[in-house]
Design a protein around this nucleic acid. Structure first.
Length: 849
RNA sequence: GCGGACGUGGCGGAAUCGGUAGACGCGCCGGGCUUAGGACCCGGUCCCUUCGGGGGUGAGGGUUCGAGUCCCUCCGUCCGCACCA
């Protein structure tokens, strides 16, 4: 498949330099390094074995940043570690009996090996592993700090239970179709007592601070949507159960709305099937129907609940009348209360006032159930009551003037909202309310291979934190890994039975472990100073390196990891574990594109992996790296197709050409045509080579700064092509010019293809010389200016002539030259007097006739 | 349905500020070298052409001396969210 003959021994050279970078500690950096600090970080990987193409892509970009910034004179912190807790290791244990630690450590070694073979360089002294007891200790310490601060709490809650993974999941781990993101099983709902982190307390800050981040806009948008802030009002509806039923005059139904201005249009109210008041609201006549609805809602997945759409019968089944009524406080109307699954218990208060005239969902429901509607916003002329979707009919949600709304009549919507809230507040019925889609973060996992939650349950003292000097709480090794729906720790008596740290009586340990996203929410801080045994990280280290200057990872972490990390960073600051600034951990984020194959993401689970290892042996790590840089914009997805291998070969071919170019004194041309270099005065051609060299430096530097790696490679190729022609030019190359130009090219390529360039540099500059210790080349602004340029002459915007002119040409001369062009004269024909001449020196003249 | 991004040769893509469309590479075509070439080197490669030119960046319209780039409408692809009241 690949090329066979190479000009040099790729394997030997790559190995040589990888060994040297390690042995010489080339990318180890101290916290007191006087150079400007730069923190470059790739999201630490889950160790699933040897690197796949996605890793290669990610760590190629990361390594480029590290080497480039180093050559730019920065002290670059380039750490790496492993997100080493997680289900695959435990699943392997269930299957094969291998302990997850043993399994994980083996996978880590494989991944380290392939990262090293890629030529990616790190300060390995700082390596962390989530499952390392020294790391677990501090994850637990952070948990307890949060517990003390009231930010970690235990609550009974309906949770997402994945039967495949035998654990509860965070909302974030459940896909929109109600299946588990990991196993694909349909997630069930269970009521369990669980640990939560109070991320909602930071909802506003997490939302607002997005504005200042240099992150891809779409990632910020995704986080904004996820947090889902909405402003509105919350108020109580007094329940009127009607004559002859139970006396429940004090019963009130609290509703949340973002449209308090439409309150006069409420024609019914709805509670979620899981709402605690459903029983109290339902009278005996309607009990059977309501119960049936509740059962169906409880059993049905999100898919069924959300996909029934507009069709009548299914929508009809999704709601039932309770037999109760509530009073609309705005107009004292008595309206029916329904139970319907289109209202979710998890959002707002789990109950709504329904305004069919101004809400499409309410409209659809009201139509099917024969409920009334009252418009409170004047719709535009021609708007009728025909079904929505046909253009101009149904619920009207646009702007307009209030009608049928008492004191709000005549107001615009925004004004009316304020008026309604004031009205509610002045009467003590309700208040302004901000609601979030974001829920608190459920962190309990009923699994073994995670960080144990360090608390004990004592009959007398309740939940008691494990004292600091007893951390870390580590899982025992002799456990049964069979899935039971409880943590394997729960059946291990030796672990379970303990004594209460407070009163000394017998107590039980918590047997759940933490979501692995907790581990990954602070690892970037540990990297700042992982050497201190007595602290998670030192304030000095954090102050020196944080925030991460360039964070690199996959778009799949746009919400979960990045939101959690932002949250935990703030918690650590607010609990005084970390210094007060910065509150944002990742200043700049880059999300790389996905590699697809046959339309789907290339992944282990899809079985469509193309292992990098085969390429290391043929085109080398450098060839593979160059391909990943060159194939397209780093942020874009690309399809791995048949032609891809030819593209990779093309990259290797370029490296070969570079090698030959740099070895011109010892030509490998079988015909032995040696290159003679000139000395003495430089010719026009020599000067042009010099200019081109400076221009290339300028372009490549600019490209690297703006993540345009594919064009950076293209510019290097262009320059190499030019130098190759120069080498064979009639007069022969000027020795000094050629030498400088080649050196510059090698320097520019150093962050991209580090092995071969390091080798070439050493050959050119002697044993012991180190390419990657060189400064990044600089260009002379005078030299990047062209002496002459091609001036384009247009007539009425159409290209008519090209004239070679001095680049400092004046407008008048340009105009004169253009107008005297034979082609221009010919094409303007009889019209000797141009209407207008647009001149943009020195590039363009447009003659308008 | 809502929100966002995008649409350029046979293919990946370039054109950073509204100013030469198609850089660079893959593929293909021709030539050289060669016992041979899947190595290497040189040349060509958007389409049409009567060789003067003409047309061309998903479609249609607009702004402008000038539009791949800005604006509007539509079509298509991808991504995110999706009963969030």
């Amino acid at each position: 498949m690949h090329r066979v003959a190479r000009e040099f021994d790729v394997e030997a050279i790559e190995k040589k330099w990888q060994d040297r970078w390690l042995a010489e500690g080339s990318y180890e950096v101290e916290n007191d390094d006087p150079r400007p600090a730069f923190y470059a970080l790739c999201m630490y990987p889950y160790p699933s074995g040897p690197a796949h193409q996605g890793h290669v892509r990610n760590y190629t970009f990361g390594d480029l940043v590290v080497r480039y910034q180093t050559m730019q004179g920065k002290a670059v912190l380039s750490p790496i570690g492993f997100d080493s807790f997680g289900l695959p290791a435990e699943n392997a244990a269930i299957k094969t009996g291998t302990h997850p630690r043993e399994f994980t450590d083996a996978r880590i070694e494989e991944l380290k090996e392939s990262l090293t073979r890629l030529g990616a360089v790190y300060d390995w002294r700082r390596e962390v592993r989530s499952h390392d007891p020294h790391y677990v200790r501090w994850t637990q310490s952070i948990f307890l700090k949060m517990f003390d601060a009231g930010l970690a709490y235990r609550a009974n809650a309906p949770v997402n239970w994945c039967p495949g993974c035998q654990t509860v999941l965070a909302n974030e781990q459940v896909l929109a179709d109600g299946t588990c993101e990991r196993s694909g099983d349909r997630v069930e709902r269970k009521d369990l007592e669980q640990w939560f982190f109070k991320i909602t307390a930071y909802a506003d800050e997490l939302l607002e601070d997005l504005d200042g981040l240099e992150w891809p806009e779409r990632v910020k948008t995704m986080q904004r949507n996820w947090i889902g802030r909405s402003e509105g009002a919350e108020f109580d509806l007094v329940v009127d159960t009607g004559a002859g039923t139970r006396s429940q005059e004090s019963l009130a139904l609290r509703v949340f709305t973002t449209r308090p201005d439409t309150s006069f249009g409420m024609t019914y109210a709805v509670v979620a099937p899981e709402h605690p008041l459903v029983d109290a609201l339902t009278d005996s006549e309607h009990r059977n129907e309501v119960e049936a609805l509740r059962r169906r809602a409880a059993a049905s997945s999100e898919i069924e609940r959300t996909s029934s759409g507009e069709d009548g019968p299914s929508l009809k089944k999704r709601g039932a009348f309770t037999g109760s009524y509530v009073i609309n406080p705005f107009n004292d109307d008595r309206v029916p209360v329904y139970v319907a699954d289109y209202v979710l218990m998890g959002y707002g208060t789990g109950a709504i006032m329904a305004v069919p005239a101004e809400d499409e969902r309410d409209w659809a429901f009201a139509k099917v159930h024969g409920l009334a509607f009252v418009r409170t916003v004047e719709p535009p002329p021609g708007w009728d009551d025909s079904p929505p979707g046909l253009g101009r009919g149904g619920a009207y949600t646009g702007p307009g003037v209030k009608i049928n709304s008492g004191f709000m009549d005549g107001m615009e919507i925004e004004e009316a909202k304020e008026a309604a809230i004031e009205w509610l507040e002045s009467r003590g019925i309700g208040r302004r309310k901000v609601n979030y889609r974001l829920r608190d973060w459920l962190v309990s996992r009923q699994r073994f291979w995670g960080c144990p939650i360090p608390v004990v349950y004592c009959e007398a003292d309740g939940i008691v934190a494990v004292p600091d000097d007893q951390l870390p709480v580590l899982a025992p090794d002799d456990v049964e890994f069979q899935p039971t729906g409880r943590s394997p720790l729960a059946t291990h008596e030796g672990f379970l039975r303990t004594t209460c740290p407070r009163c000394g009586s017998s107590a039980e340990r918590e047997t759940d472990t933490m979501d692995t996203f907790v581990d990954s929410s602070w690892y970037f801080l540990r990297f700042c100073d992982p050497f201190d045994p007595d602290r998670a990280f030192s304030p000095e280290g954090v102050r020196h390196w944080m925030p991460v200057d360039q964070y690199i990872g996959g778009i799949e972490h746009a919400i979960l990891h990045l939101l959690y990390a932002r949250f935990i960073m703030r918690v650590l600051i607010d609990t005084k574990m970390a210094p007060g600034a910065p509150r944002e951990p990742f200043r700049r984020l880059f999300t790389q594109g996905m590699i697809r194959m046959g339309g789907t993401k290339m992944s282990k689970s899809k079985g469509n992996l193309i292992a990098p290892s085969g390429y290391y042996d043929t085109v080398g790590a450098d060839g593979l790296r160059l391909f990943h840089l060159f194939v397209g914009p780093p942020a874009d997805d690309f399809d791995w197709v048949e032609q891809t291998n030819q593209l990779i070969d093309g990259c290797a071919r370029f490296i070969d050409r570079l090698w030959r170019l740099c070895s011109y004194e010892e030509p490998s041309d079988p015909r032995g045509r040696g290159i003679e270099v000139r000395s003495g005065p430089e010719s026009d051609e020599d000067r042009e080579i010099r200019r081109s060299t400076h221009r290339t430096i300028q372009k490549v530097t600019d490209d690297l700064d703006r993540w345009s790696y594919n064009t950076a490679v293209a510019h290097c190729m262009e320059q190499a092509n030019l130098l190759q022609r120069y080498l064979r030019s009639e007069r022969g190359p000027h020795g000094e010019v050629l030498k400088t130009s080649l050196d510059s090219l090698v320097l520019l390529l150093a962050p991209m293809i580090p092995h071969v360039t390091a080798e070439l540099w050493e050959r050119r500059h002697g044993e012991g010389s180190r390419l990657h210790k060189q400064s990044w080349p600089r260009f002379d602004p005078e030299m990047v200016k062209d002496e002459t340029v091609t001036m384009v002459v247009q007539v009425n915007g159409k290209l008519r002539d090209r004239i070679e002119v001095r680049s400092d040409i004046g407008e008048e001369e340009a105009t004169r030259l253009a107008l005297s062009s034979a082609k221009v004269i010919e094409s303007i024909d009889g019209d000797q007097t141009p209407k207008r001449v647009v001149v943009k020196v020195p590039r363009l003249v447009n003659v308008v006739v």
